[in-house]
Design a protein around this nucleic acid. Structure first.
Lengths: 91, 91
DNA sequence: ATCATTTATTGAAGAATTTCGATAAATACG
DNA sequence: CGTATTTATCGAAATTCTTCAATAAATGAT
């Protein structure tokens, strides 16, 4: 992973609501629907959509459509690559 | 590590110049002087000082004074804690 | 086909971040 | 002491990010 990609992922992680979304994805046993976040996160719907978009653009989260719902998944592989990048800073 | 702390660290990592600083700390074999960064990073001195301050406030980087220089170190322990926090998102 | 539900987009306001010039503070050197 | 070097702080401008209301788009249900 290059620094530019790591920067984008760091930015995706640099917001409390996006961290909450990742926690909810984990809690939901591998996926969740966007609509479920409206109960968990105290933000207007367009704001949640915005945060999901940033997470997807960072590729930390993937999605697929199921009818009119969207399911979200964590990209474990990319998270591992990001972690490896960070390990590279260690002495 | 709680989410608030992780957010702060993510923010510290969410800038190309700060990632460069961390890389330089690594390259310098465990420490470096602030003044060395002026050659590596194309920013005015107050900007570099600002980025170093954010890294130190996140506690990802520690420092100690040596005469009029300051040495910077990576906080390996905190980086590991951050990585553990991220691992917590994995399925 | 109509209506309801879920998600996405647009545009704008406010907040936070980045950057720099100017300047101050601290320390080393002669 | 006076000067040079290194780092920190202040204040302002520019940019980026967050948030929301309004609205659109897509799909499901009746």
């Amino acid at each position: 992973m290059d620094a530019k990609k790591a920067e984008k992922i760091s930015k995706a992680l640099a917001d409390p609501n996006r961290l909450t979304i990742l926690k909810e994805i984990k809690k939901s046993k591998s996926c969740l629907y966007c609509v479920d976040l409206n109960n968990t996160i105290n933000l207007a719907q367009p704001s949640i959509a915005h945060h999901l978009k940033l997470l997807i653009e960072s590729e930390l989260v993937t999605s697929d459509k199921e009818g009119r719902n969207v399911r979200y998944y964590l990209n474990n592989k990319l998270l591992d690559e990001y972690i490896s990048f960070l390990e590279g800073f260690k002495i």
